[in-house]
Amino acid sequence: MGQVRIIGGRWRNTRLQVPQLDGLRPTSDRVRETLFNWLMPKLPGARVLDLFAGSGALGLEAVSRGAASAQLVERDPALVAALRATVAKLDAAGQVAVTAADAVQWLRASAPAQVDVVFLDPPFAAGLWDQVIAELPRHLADGGWLYVEAPAGAPPVLPAGWSLHREGGTREVTYALYRRATATLRGDMNATEPA
């Protein structure tokens, strides 16, 4: 088993046990710290969806830092078992739900969730970007936020309706935070978001 550490909030420094599986690459501490600095004003009370949850670090970190709830979607049985054990250890079942499902199928079959933040970090080699992004609008609230992690130098191209808020990168990954543009936001779509 490997470990991932929650780096902020009420569960700060809690270590999560994570099976070591091929292709599993939990978001690094440095990238998570940057992401949650960007999201901090938007997190209190937010409903989050962590697709391809893996270690669960993104969804659990969000709840640790004030999000109201998180839905973690993961299809690998070993990861699902580890996520459920972590949720039990944290006594977080009232806020964190773990769903054993293929993320694309879950998006297509489930009722619209209307969450405030979506974390999207699929297996890079699987080529799932277009399928997942096409299904997101019905699950994301107006003005909601989408975090995307992709191979370094090769971010997915998002269709019209998404506004880039912030982006960064490491040697391994490119990461970006987008906001869903809606009719109610047209007046401020071109405005610069505060840091």
Rank of each mutant, 00 (worst) to 15 (best):
D91V: 04
V73F: 02
E135N: 00
W162T: 01
G23W: 10
V80Q: 15
L146M: 05
A100H: 10
I133H: 07
L158V: 01
D91N: 12
P77T: 08
P155Q: 04
I7L: 09
A191E: 07
G59T: 09
T14A: 01
A62P: 13
L49C: 03
R25V: 08
Q105M: 11
W145A: 02
L58Q: 10
L39I: 03
D121Q: 02
A134D: 14
V173N: 03
G168F: 10
A183R: 11
P151D: 01
P151G: 00
G153F: 11
R65A: 04
A183P: 07
L164I: 08
A46K: 04
T170C: 08
G144A: 02
R166V: 03
A92D: 07
T182L: 01
V80E: 15
A88H: 11
L49M: 05
T184M: 12
T170A: 09
A125C: 12
D91W: 06
E33N: 09
T34Y: 09
R75S: 15
A111D: 13
P194M: 00
P19Q: 04
Q17Y: 09
G54M: 09
A125K: 14
A134H: 03
E61D: 06
G23Y: 14
L72W: 12
L185Y: 09
D76V: 13
R15V: 13
A67C: 13
G169R: 13
Q20M: 13
Y147F: 14
R138C: 02
G168W: 10
L177H: 11
K89P: 12
G153I: 01
R32I: 02
V80M: 11
T192L: 03
V117H: 00
G127S: 07
V118Y: 06
